[in-house]
Amino acid sequence: MNKSQCPDALTIQAVADGEENDLIITEHLQDCSKCRETYLDVQRIISVAEGLSSDARLPIGFYKVLSGRIESKPFPAFLVAAIISALAFISVYLLNPTYLEWWFSVGMTRQFGFYIDMFFDLFFLSRSINPLWVITVMTAMVVLEFLILSKLKTVEG
């Protein structure tokens, strides 16, 4: 490109953005009024667009929170769902052992979808709520059930 040749608008924009610093172009911009006008026009819209930025900064301690999340290993949701399902079976067994026998012999085929759904519901629940809370509540319920049943047995003689 020679000094008398007008650069295109994209090149002028690149100069205004500080991406192009070819001496021939900058000299041309000083001599050519039409190109200088384009350059000043681009510069003006750049200064307006600069207003899109802000002085917002990340809060102090951001990295600390981030590294805390990196170090904490995710709780295995499948394991939680399996534990809760096992607790549910124990609970059913405590309430009525024959029901569990019936379920294994006949009910499993009829209600298989229901149990699969239940397993995945527990899986997603474990991902959204602290799984330790779910396990604790379930365990507490089974223990309570066991205590009530043994109390009833004592009363019934």
């Binding site: 930025s53 802000s54 917002a56 900064r57 990340l58 951001f62 990295y63 981030l66 590294s67 990196i70």
Partner: peptide, 20 residues
């Protein structure tokens, strides 16, 4: 983690402003 810390220090605020 050191690499990540460097990234946060260099680009954190700019990424935050963009996301904002």
């Amino acid at each position: 983690q050191k690499l990540l810390q460097g990234m946060v220090e260099t680009y954190g605020d700019r990424i935050y402003r963009l996301v904002l």
